[in-house]
Amino acid sequence: MGLNMIVAVKWVPNTQIVNIDPTTGTLIREGIPSIVNPHDLNAVELALRLKEKYGGTVTAISMAPPAARAGLEFIMGMGVDRAILITDKVFAGADTLATSYTLAKAIEKLKPYDLLIFGHETIDSSTAHIGAQVASWLKIPYIYYVIDTEYRDGYIFAKRRLEKKIEIYKLPIPCLIAVAMRSNEPRPIKLEYKLRVKLENPLEVWTNNELQLSRACIGLRGSPTRVEKAVPTPTIPRKKMKYEGQDVKEAVKWLVDKLLEEGLKII
């Protein structure tokens, strides 16, 4: 039987770059490639592990511009069976509501599914809303911070890591889990899978022709979120203190003392 799983992945700008033009003060974005949201790779990894354990299929979906094809090909290289790119100009400008609605509607078309696996949050917007919202649209249970999962007697047993304990939840299928960041380290790309992607070009592209969603619920029009005002975070003036000694241990002690002076509390 196995588990039919759907993994949601987002195509995000690689925000690990901080190249600022001194004249304009803006971020230099030229030639900065996008990547699969790193936390979503943990979700893909968990899905693949579950597939190895219980059988079934892993389908990846992403709502993104056409360039995200490269990202979906990347995770197919990890071993995902099927990938669907949801792309259409009418989906552009979506806030979390419109994004989750579109994803939920796409997922409905992929029925029957047993388990939806999401990343915890994205590196470019990091609301961590999408998983919960998708589950709400689909009226299925969901749980976050999952580090591992078992599948027994038609139930998902989701292991959840909190600060000081590990909880195990029993969820009926279908359900949604969001995978804890840094758990389930992603596996490397495999020649066999990447080659298959290149030879068979298996990526599916869905536009709103396939989904037939009302324009009022998607894209910019379906996005009630308005950014009223962006308040820059206050910059804390640098104190420019420097430890002049050589000893590493002393340096650490010095640093901690300084931080304590600034009001840091050790608990």
């Binding site: 690689n14 690990q16 770059i17 190249n19 600022i20 033009d21 001194p22 490639p33 990547i35 380290e185």
Partner: peptide
Amino acid sequence: MSVQALKKIKITEALNTNIWDVDSR
């Protein structure tokens, strides 16, 4: 990172101008 005349930069600043996708292994 602005390269000002005569101001030397640190290697970490130079590396920060690059794009990375660092492996966890």
